[in-house]
Amino acid sequence: MSNISENLENAKDKITEGVENVTNKVADSIKGAKDNMPEVTPTPPGMKSQSSVEDLKSRLEWGEPAFTILDVRDRETFNDGHIMGAMAMPVDQLVDRAKSSLEPSRDIYVYGETDEATASAASSLRQAGFECVAELKGGFAAWKAIGGATEGVSESRTPAGADDYNVVSRLQDEASKS
């Protein structure tokens, strides 16, 4: 009987040792896998001196509140339609108004009637001491083209993308243009 007990005890020890070995191998494999995993923590897009509307939309989708969008077109054009949340700062008042209402270190996206007007406004802001100014390439038209959120008098009448999936309406619009 003692021989059977001894054999059972030896078998139990071997099983325990085997389980410990397997456990250690699995733990080592997991640790090795973790050490070799690429960094997957997403990071928000950074600020560039010339930015696309996609760059701006990406930052908005990240929910970053620490930037300002400036529309330097005339007030009537701004009122007709602009990027949602943009501030109106006509180019002739731009530097004075920006200095009185924005921190020099604030991230600023600026757009005008043309890319040239945008570049000129951005240059004025940089010369006035604003450190992080991005020219929004394509301006309001490019923003609307990607379905960015808009507001204004005209924009409230025809929300962006209202007929995007209405095939009948789009076909009628195209037929009336012919």
Rank of each mutant, 00 (worst) to 15 (best):
N3K: 13
S5Q: 14
N7H: 14
E9S: 15
E9F: 15
E9D: 15
E9I: 15
K12V: 12
K12G: 08
E17S: 15
G18K: 14
E20M: 15
N21C: 09
N21D: 13
N21L: 11
V22I: 15
T23N: 10
N24D: 12
K25D: 15
V26H: 01
I30N: 01
G32T: 06
A33W: 13
D35P: 01
D35Q: 07
N36D: 10
T41Y: 06
T43N: 07
P45K: 06
K48A: 12
S51H: 03
S52Y: 11
S52K: 10
V53L: 05
L56W: 08
L56D: 03
K57E: 13
L60W: 02
E61N: 14
T68D: 07
D74R: 07
D74C: 05
E76G: 07
T77M: 09
N79Y: 04
D80W: 07
I83Q: 00
M84T: 08
M84L: 13
G85C: 01
M87Q: 13
A88E: 11
D92Y: 04
D92F: 06
L94Y: 00
L94S: 00
V95T: 01
D96Y: 08
A98S: 04
A98D: 01
S101Q: 09
L102C: 01
E103N: 10
S105L: 06
R106I: 07
V110T: 04
A121I: 01
A121Q: 01
A122N: 00
A122V: 01
A128R: 02
F130Q: 04
C132F: 14
A134P: 03
G138P: 03
F140A: 07
G147T: 02
G147K: 06
E155P: 00
P159S: 00
G161I: 00
D163W: 06
D164G: 10
Y165T: 05
N166E: 06
S169L: 14
Q172G: 05
Q172C: 06
Q172N: 09
E174G: 04
A175I: 10
A175M: 11
S176A: 15
S176T: 14
K177E: 13
